[in-house]
Nucleic acid binder design. Structure first.
Length: 819
RNA sequence: GCCCGGAUGGCGGAAUCGGCAGACGCGGAGGCCUCAAAAGCCUUUACUCGAAAGGGUGUGUGGGUUCAAGUCCCACUCCGGGCACCA
């Protein structure tokens, strides 16, 4: 489409000016009120796609809007530049991930600049920058010293496709790798962990304080999974001085325990298995432990193959009865004590198992009349439960817990679903873990002055299942920093989520050296006032970053910094093409560049703002091109209007001009409200309505006031400035050359006097149906409204029966009810 | 299975506190301008009966509350997402 101005030239001019003049640089000692806006820093997969455009358009709009509202706005950017795709691409191309990554960063940077997004580029952070790595490693060592990082052997998730272990958070519900989609295997390996569970309670509690989408908060709460219960002993029937320890959240149902179950990996299993059951137990254990987590847990309906009797018995402490001990794959070794008491009457899993193995079911909570399910998990009076009989669940829980504490070595306990964070990765393109293994001194931290530990360039990245760095003799072999003896370097790298767990802190103070950041500088900006990103990070990144910040505060690296990093979170919807998410891995990207060349960044930005609520997904369809052109058409009309094409402007001011000013000020109020509510689609709609009204008014043959036109023009450009920054800046400069630029203007404020309506349309209904619309004074009284409504010809014509009641809501509505 | 979120014209969506359903835009139809086209501008556009005036119907389905329901309550259908042996 032919544009009334040279879009490319105008946009390039302003992009250069913002960058060259550092318009959006901000200093840490700025005295204005502060506002920290941050979009999740992107993984540099290449040039931007529409998902990026959407994300960074919202971010940039907030930056410019808050600046016009008088804040010192911190708007940094960076790149999450370690990660598997770059390594895989480099392997394929026989190149080095750094070359690949640096090229991708240049492309993505160019896209962001062409979008018109503005940043304080002095604060740019790149995860693979050796300077940044140095601080990432310092933090690791600080965690190590504080006991927050440790090495342990554990059953871990191994992804064959990625040739590395994964964190629990990176394994999807169906047991596949979130990145490669491969089925994850279980392997027993020695790995590095971060003690995130130490913060489980605080991570859970603080969720309440966050202004985040409710569903993200719910996901975090579910992931942490707190449950209160009692841990106690089930004495062995064969030797009551010894016991099997179990955890339960339902001690009140103790009289209903009819068997106990061990996890296949339970340490007492061998001892409790009698010779005649050994074979059956062994085959179950072998199958359970070699299977992947999914295979183990998804054998729907196949309960028959899932458990085995050990041949041993334990004593139920409540009634002294001897109950059989089973082993079953549905009990997890890694949660609680790895063993449970089973109450088939009040637990669905136990019920299913008991039915399959023909074990007794004893009801201890009275189910309501008509309950026809299996296990009853609701409330009710206890029965068959000795001293608990008659008590409801809450009271019985307390009494039963007291009993267990006194009589069965019981301990009230809180368990969490959350596990420690496995941070080792057997891959090359990540930040090396800075420790050395010495035969005499054991694990020795690399001294601070030797940081960063940087991987050499000549490493073979072939995926042999071990870390690529382990194959590089020059890197692997070193000397112990403590005793000088020959030693071996750690060859694993850190999970890239460690990089993204603190980058926003470095961005708040990228100027300090020798420390990751200066806490007093960072404290000035944190927490991030508005964090913007995708819902896909609802658990992983957001939980890890919360943990990092709390830990950094506690160990002194971030003293005085807010304990929660992201006060407000906005998760924007994703772009879908033919129903699937737009992403590089799916190969269905739509690049913004062609649009930059035609409708311009402003047109594309406006489209993303206008197409729907920011939180909703966007379907990229055949209609989309039309909507984008519609947005560009709107901008063209603004351009032509501002240039006074075909206008009839006069010096005098009349009633139509006053009405125009009222319309303008109502628009200011509407747009401002929409901006605050993240309702950008309606903000754009309000500006479109304003333009329609102005066009009509300013072309009226009667003539429109020049003074009012000027007010409309300058105000409209201000309102448009965060949305379509290039064109607004250009028009403002052309028409108001002696003033500071549009983005330096204050955000318009509506004049309250102009928001008052003198007259309004009053609806008159008869029995709820609209029969007339009357133009009435806004301050009409009840009586006057009633008179006016009943006096209306068309209302009387619609009556048909005597009036029995009149509902009057002045000045909006009258509803006449007939008999 | 459990927990959230959603369903409004041909399409994206609006309606912020229970008070004019469909703002704004896309698409469609008609017109102006033009030798013609593009661009631009104007009119129109929920469905339906009607020549018109005007009437009827209408926010996933079925009930309910209310003078009044897209909005509140109950039951359900479908779609999207999360969790799913965590004892």
């Amino acid at each position: 489409m032919a544009r009334p101005f040279d879009v490319k030239a105008v946009e390039a001019k302003w992009q250069a000016r913002w960058r060259d003049e550092g318009t959006y640089n901000v200093d840490n000692d700025d005295r204005r009120d502060r506002y920290y806006v941050l979009c999740m820093y992107p993984y540099p997969s290449g040039a931007a796609h529409q998902g990026h455009v959407r994300n960074y358009t919202f971010g940039d709009l907030v930056v410019r809007y808050k600046t016009m509202r008088g804040y010192a706005v911190l708007s940094p950017i960076g790149f999450d530049s370690f990660g598997l795709p770059a390594e895989n691409a480099a392997i394929k191309a026989g190149s080095h991930p750094r070359l690949f990554t640096d090229a991708r960063i240049r492309e993505l940077t160019s896209s962001l600049v062409r979008l018109g997004a503005v940043y304080d580029w002095r604060r740019e952070v790149q995860s693979h920058d050796p300077q940044y790595m140095k601080y990432s490693q310092m933090i690791f060592l600080a965690f190590l010293e504080a006991g927050l990082a440790y090495r342990a052997t554990a059953p871990v998730n191994w992804c064959p496709g990625c040739a590395t272990v994964l964190a629990n958070e990176q394994v999807l519900a169906d047991g596949t790798c979130e990145r490669s989609g491969d089925l994850v295997q279980r392997r027993e390996l020695e790995q590095w962990f971060f003690r995130i569970t130490q913060y489980a309670e605080e991570l859970l509690k603080d969720v309440d304080e966050l202004e985040w989408p409710e569903r993200v908060k719910t996901m975090q709460r579910n992931w942490i999974g707190r449950s209160e219960g009692v841990e106690f002993d089930l004495a062995l029937a064969s030797d009551p001085s010894r016991a099997l320890r179990v955890f339960t959240t339902r001690p009140d149902t103790g009289f209903g325990v009819t068997y106990a179950v061990l996890a296949p990996e339970h340490p007492l299993l061998g001892e409790l298995t009698t010779p005649e059951h050994a074979e059956e137990v062994a085959s179950l254990v072998e199958r359970a432990l070699s299977a992947s987590e999914v295979e183990r847990t998804s054998s729907e309906g196949g309960l028959a193959k899932r458990g085995a009797f050990t041949g041993s018995y334990v004593l139920n402490p409540f009634n002294g009865r001897s109950v059989p001990v089973y082993v079953a794959d549905y009990v997890l070794g890694s949660y609680g004590t790895g063993a449970v008491m089973a109450v088939p009457a009040e637990d669905e899993r136990d019920y299913d198992f008991a039915r399959t193995y023909d074990l007794p079911i004893v009801r201890t909570v009275q189910a309501p009349d008509g309950f026809d399910g299996g296990a009853y998990t609701g409330d009710g009076p206890h029965v068959n439960s000795g001293f608990l009989d008659g008590l409801d669940v809450v009271a019985a829980k307390a009494a039963a817990a007291d009993f267990l504490v006194e009589r069965a070595g019981g301990l009230r306990k809180v368990n969490y679903r959350l596990r420690d964070w496995l941070v080792s990765r057997q891959r090359f393109w990540g930040c090396p873990i800075p420790v050395v293994y010495c035969p005499t001194d054991g694990i020795v931290p690399v001294p601070l002055e030797q940081l960063p530990v940087v991987a050499p360039d000549d490493v073979s990245m072939d995926q042999t299942g071990q870390s690529p760095l382990a194959t590089h003799a020059g890197f692997l072999h070193t000397s112990c920093p403590r005793c000088g003896a020959p030693a071996r370097r750690e060859t694993d790298t850190m999970d890239t989520f460690t990089d993204s767990s603190w980058y926003f802190l470095r961005m708040a103070d990228p100027f300090s050296s020798g420390v990751p950041f200066d806490p007093t500088q960072v404290a000035k900006w944190m927490p991030v006032d508005q964090y913007i990103g995708g819902i896909e990070h609802a658990i992983l990144h957001l939980l890890y970053a919360r943990f990092y910040v709390k830990a950094l505060v506690d160990i002194g690296l971030a003293s005085g910094v807010a304990r929660e990093p992201f006060a407000r979170l906005f998760t924007q919807g994703m772009i879908r093409l033919h129903g699937t998410k737009m992403s590089k891995s799916k190969g269905n990207l739509i690049a913004p560049e062609p649009y930059f060349d035609t409708v311009g960044a402003d047109g594309l930005r406006l489209f993303h703002l206008f197409v729907g609520p920011p939180a909703d997904d966007v379907d990229w369809t055949d209609q989309t091109e039309g909507v984008i052109e519609g947005c560009a058409r709107f901008l063209d009309r603004v351009w032509r209007l501002c240039s006074e094409n075909g206008l009839h402007l006069v010096e005098r001011e009349g009633p139509a001009d006053y009405a125009m000013r009222q319309e303008l000020h109502r628009t200011i109020a509407k747009v401002t409200d929409s901006m605050e509510r993240w309702s950008y689609n309606t903000a754009v709609a309000a500006l479109m309505e304003l333009l329609n009204a102005v066009s009509k008014w300013a072309r009226d043959p009667q003539g429109a006031s020049r003074v009012v036109f000027d007010e409309v023009r300058r105000t409209m450009l201000c309102l448009l400035a965060p949305m379509a920054p290039h064109m607004s800046a250009e028009l403002f400069e052309v028409h108001y050359p002696s003033e500071p630029g549009v983005h330096a203007q204050s955000w318009p404020r509506p004049d309250p006097a102009l928001l008052v309506r003198e007259s309004v349309t009053m609806v008159v209904q008869v029995n709820g149906k609209v029969r007339a619309r009357l133009e009435v004074l806004a301050d009409i009284t009840q009586e006057q409204a009633r008179e006016a409504a009943l006096g209306e010809e068309r209302v009387r014509a619609a009556l048909g029966a005597p009036v029995t009641r009149v509902v009057v809501v002045p000045p909006r509505l009258v509803n006449v009810i007939t008999g």
